[in-house]
Design a protein around this nucleic acid. Structure first.
Lengths: 246, 246
DNA sequence: CGTGTAGTTGATGCTCCTCAATTTTTGTGG
DNA sequence: CCACAAAAATTGAGGAGCATCAACTACACG
């Protein structure tokens, strides 16, 4: 998706409209006529496409500063939906193109933005083997985009993450749990949406495939090494002999 | 990769050089300074990137009419290598950009080409589950690009196909064999490089995940159902009783 | 308190990878 | 043109990683 950012919209001196969306509201759907281009001001959205029924590919998470909605043809090729209360700016696509034909500098900006989009789209590794590496990459991206004082407050569900990295929701869970057990990350609340990255180096090694991380054996090791902890978790049973540590 | 095609180069009235490459020769390598932009005139090439050692991702196969080599930054981000004797046209990247700043129409052409490249790059499904579907899609693309009178003469090895679709060479082999057993395709010579598509409809259904094709069970069924056919294949032994059909 | 949603955990099986052997094809020099 | 070596393609057996199905926990909301 070409990133027609807010700065480009202002450079084109276009009239913009401010739009607000609640969590779950759809900005546009696949197949809808592509009249407007958008730039995120506040909040978070996701852009996705339905492959088959019950299979969705989330192409991009959108945060403040990101532009979206520009299409070559007349219709949108994907759907954009808000993840939480969100404010976006919208401008008419036709007006943008008209301004570009009369303004060489603006045309150049558009070309640069499009060329940049190609780089971004191509740098998405087509198929990465290891699931853990894809999730590590996702976490590092979120850290770069939305971390506040080292803490990431994820606006999306496990299901969204799964559809983004191309794994199942269950596998995402397992890998995140394994990351926590290995002290790569740490969750900060009970809903598991706020987290901090504790070992960025090892996550980066994971992404570059320089380190292999077998999340299944990490989970197994935990189940074997910490039977007392398991007992403590089920300590509502009074007949458990092992001493529990809160 | 932005497709700066031959028609754009001529529209820009740029001076071009004609270059020739033998099979296996490299046009440019990852990290080399990006001075030129290219358009294929004859032959075939592939553009790839090394992920880790012994892992390569072939981003694109290039055929006559395709443009390649344009970069945002100063250096090439991937490597391009000829698959067979190939002729390409090259023009100076700087001259192209200079022409674009003075010519609004050309700038528009460049923007359109870049935007089109984004669509192409994004339409590559990030992760498709079924390996058979990815190979079916590859075959249909090759059919559209390089088929002559319904016959496809693949310029690349199984290894290239594997690196392109993100599977191993062995899996590619097995799927192709299963496709042939199910009469979806037919090889035309002993090198297994020339083939015809016999059932385009079913291949398309495979791509859209509307049909599931279990290549392993196809291969197993063959091993069980056709012991006589296997004997016929080894019919140089005179003691085989089954009648052989040439 | 029930109901619904998000998240976690476990058991099992399938798809594809890995390693290995063999056959077929291609390229090269006599 | 043929023989030989190297490369490409095929086939098989076994195993790893992730999906699937299912149960369960925790929390939010009326």
């Amino acid at each position: 998706m070409i990133n027609i950012s807010r700065s480009i919209l202002t450079a084109a001196k276009l009239q913009t409209v401010e739009l607000r969306y609640a969590r779950g509201e759809i900005v546009y759907e696949h197949g809808a006529p592509a009249q407007l281009v958008y730039a995120v001001d506040e909040g978070a959205l996701h852009r996705f496409r339905l492959l088959s029924e019950n299979q969705r590919s989330i192409r991009q998470f959108l945060f403040p500063g990101d532009g979206f909605g520009y299409e070559i043809g007349r219709r949108h090729r994907d759907t954009v939906q808000a993840l939480k209360p969100t404010k976006v700016l919208a401008a008419a696509r036709g007006a943008l193109l008209a301004a570009a034909t009369s303004d060489p500098g603006l045309c150049n900006l558009l070309f640069t933005a499009a060329a940049q989009a190609v780089v971004v789209a191509e740098d998405q590794p087509v198929t990465r083997r290891v699931g853990a590496a894809r999730i590590a990459q996702f976490l590092l991206e979120m850290d770069a985009r939305i971390a506040m004082r080292g803490e990431i407050n994820l606006p999306m569900h496990r299901r969204h993450i799964a559809d983004h990295v191309g794994l199942t929701l269950e596998t995402v869970c397992r890998v995140l749990t394994a990351f926590q057990l290995e002290e790569l990350i740490k969750f900060r609340d009970r809903t598991q949406r706020r987290l901090v990255i504790r070992d960025k180096k090892r996550l980066q090694l994971l992404v570059s495939d320089a380190l292999d991380f077998d999340y299944l054996s990490v989970l197994k090791r935990k189940a074997v090494n910490a039977p007392t902890a398991v007992s403590a978790a089920t300590a509502h049973r009074a007949d458990v002999a092992a001493p529990s540590f809160t």
